[in-house]
Amino acid sequence: MTDRLQGVVPLASDPRPTHIGTHTFHGLAPGPKLLVLGAVHGNEVCGTKAIQQLLQDMASGQLCIERGTVTFVPVTNPLAYQLKRRTGDRNLNRNMAPSAIPQDFEDRIANVLCPLLDSHDMLLDLHSFHTGGAPFVMIGPQNNSGTLEPFSQAEAEMQLALCTGAPRIVEGWLDTYARGVSRRAAAPVVTGSARAQTLVTDPNYGVGTTEYMRSRGGYGVTLECGQHDDPQAVEVARRAIVQTLALLKMVSLPLKSTDTEREVLRLVDVTDREHAGDSFTRAWRSFDAVKAGEVIGTRHSGAEVKAPHDGFVVFPNPRAEPGQEWFYMARRRA
């Protein structure tokens, strides 16, 4: 493992990374193939730290893979990690697809990451979030044969979500994002490069690691382990990895009960930040409840942004770039 993957902070003058590090363990009995990702966003390092702890446990013999294959990627986007920010050239967790002619660093990462996803059966992607709040896990759609995100493994994916221990389960990402892209394309906020503008108005821009995995016949969840700097987020990530290994019977450890009732919410809308002067009325946290008509933010123009219905604010990002997601709205699953 390189010093960079061990968490040593590189100098700002360091050259751009030229590789990503992976760690694969093959059990001597056949079984599933699990991929675990950390630091898809470079400032979300709880997964990185949890993976590093577990690699040490494996090196010392405290944790042993007995069945199947698990691959750990402690730092999936090393440029963003090096810069200690969410992105390198762009958001790696959008427009996830191989590129015949890569145009940025994340395209080059995707050309390595997509084949890695192709070669595994399921994915645990470890993230954290800007503002306070409890951990939650994001799942894909119900089984369907539609055109947006056809899927046939909803039951297995739900079991994976439950074993992470997150108290909330959130669904509805891709169709909500697609509606946002449609509005964005109809009334674009011109910001950044032409490349950035093209990406954020591309319907495929909502496709990230889990969406790509589902499109290839696998399944996966995104676990939001807590606020970026919360030390408990590392333990949430660590527990989720170990419990996933237990669920898949890859290790000889008991699976903790998943009988606890979970709140299931569905994303239903997304609001973009239009101007750097747009501001929230308060420091919203994910899953803060709002009533229809409640003012969530104020545009630079002075116009109020109100909740369109009773529900919950999700992913509020006071530092969102103009033309990108400012916050989502969710409702309880009917």
Rank of each mutant, 00 (worst) to 15 (best):
L5I: 10
Q6S: 04
P10I: 02
L11E: 00
S13M: 03
D14I: 02
P17Y: 05
G21C: 10
H23Q: 06
P30G: 05
G31H: 12
L37Q: 10
L37E: 13
E44G: 12
A50G: 10
A50V: 11
L54R: 04
L54V: 03
D57A: 08
Q62C: 01
V75R: 08
R94N: 12
M96K: 01
M96V: 15
M96C: 14
I101A: 10
D104H: 01
D104V: 00
D107T: 06
R108F: 02
C114L: 11
C114V: 15
D118K: 03
H120C: 14
D121V: 03
M122N: 00
L123N: 07
L124P: 12
S128Y: 14
F136K: 11
I139H: 09
I139W: 09
G140W: 15
N143Y: 06
N143E: 14
S145L: 12
T147S: 15
P150H: 04
F151N: 14
S152K: 10
A154D: 13
L162C: 05
G165T: 09
P167H: 10
V170N: 05
Y177T: 00
A178Y: 01
A178G: 04
S182E: 04
R183Y: 01
A185K: 04
V189E: 07
T191W: 08
T191P: 06
S193M: 01
R195G: 00
R195F: 07
A196V: 05
L199W: 07
L199E: 00
D202V: 04
N204L: 02
V207M: 09
T210P: 05
T210Q: 01
G220Y: 07
V221N: 05
T222K: 07
L223T: 04
G226I: 05
H228D: 11
Q232G: 04
Q232P: 09
A240H: 02
A240R: 01
A240L: 03
A246M: 11
K249N: 15
V251M: 07
L255K: 10
S257F: 15
T258D: 14
V264T: 09
L265P: 13
R266I: 01
H275Y: 11
G277K: 07
G277Q: 14
G277W: 02
D278H: 07
S279P: 07
R282F: 07
A289H: 10
T298A: 01
H300C: 12
V305I: 12
A307P: 07
P308K: 01
D310S: 08
F312G: 00
V313H: 06
N317L: 13
P318H: 03
F327H: 03
R331D: 09
R332M: 08
